[in-house]
């Protein structure tokens, strides 16, 4: 899923302070699971903003709404009839949701309430970690199912680099070396021979280097 993290309250206050009627818009998907932008977080942010402005002697209308998804037209349509009651929207969806909402409601200021961090997994309670950078040409079949693009700090495809120490990456003792993990897994799979196959120069045009990416499916189109 997409992993996001709440923006500091101070930053959000700065962004919204000049608006009187603010809608806090949550999303029921990824950001709910990673506890950054679901219904609960909408409630908390709304309450905090109300209190902050109240204490400042300012009366503001702070609305709350959480959509099934913000990256889909049909759900975003659900706020069409209420959107004009507001001067600005703070979206707690990932960057995709914020933008999709902005595209739909052209004259409405849309402010991000979270920082979108990565594509990751819920590794443990309160711990979300990156697993993929959507490079567009997946190499997992050749790397024991561990991604060197997202999990190696240098995206080394023929690793490890010289900095791997006791299973950890040179950037930090808290970061696993992706190539240690790859080698452990190749060993477990009894495929160490694969290690010596040289990974060819990668086609990064399917990564962000190639510009905005799209998937077109004629068979799905109506």
């Amino acid at each position: 899923m997409i992993i996001a993290e709440k923006k500091p309250i101070e930053e959000i206050i700065q962004e919204v302070k000049d608006f009187d009627r603010i809608l806090i818009l949550g999303c029921n998907e990824c950001v709910t699971v990673c506890e950054a932008g679901g219904k609960k977080e909408v409630e908390v942010l709304a309450s905090v903003l109300r209190m902050y402005f109240m204490a400042q002697g300012q009366e503001k209308t702070i609305g709350e709404r959480t959509l099934e998804r913000q990256c889909d037209h049909e759900y975003l349509e659900e706020i069409r009839n209420i959107i004009d009651d507001y001067d600005a929207v703070v979206s707690l969806a990932c960057g995709v949701g914020v933008q999709f909402a902005a595209e739909k409601y052209l004259t409405m200021p849309l402010l991000p309430g979270v920082n979108t961090v990565c594509l990751g997994a819920n590794e443990d309670r309160g711990l979300w970690t990156e697993r993929c950078q959507a490079c567009g040409t997946c190499v997992l079949a050749r790397t024991g199912g561990i991604c060197p693009v997202s999990r190696c700090a240098k995206r080394v495809l023929n690793g490890p680099c010289g900095g791997s120490t006791n299973g950890k990456c040179e950037i930090s003792k808290d970061t696993d070396c992706a190539w240690q993990l790859i080698i452990d897994r190749l060993k477990a799979l009894d495929k160490m021979d694969d290690y010596e196959k040289v990974a060819p120069v990668k086609d990064w045009s399917t990564d962000r280097a190639g510009g905005p990416r799209t998937v077109t499916r004629e068979d799905v189109k109506i």
Partner: peptide, 8 residues
């Protein structure tokens, strides 16, 4: 923490 931040 939040209450501190918003001056309550």
């Amino acid at each position: 923490r939040v209450l501190d931040l918003i001056g309550v």
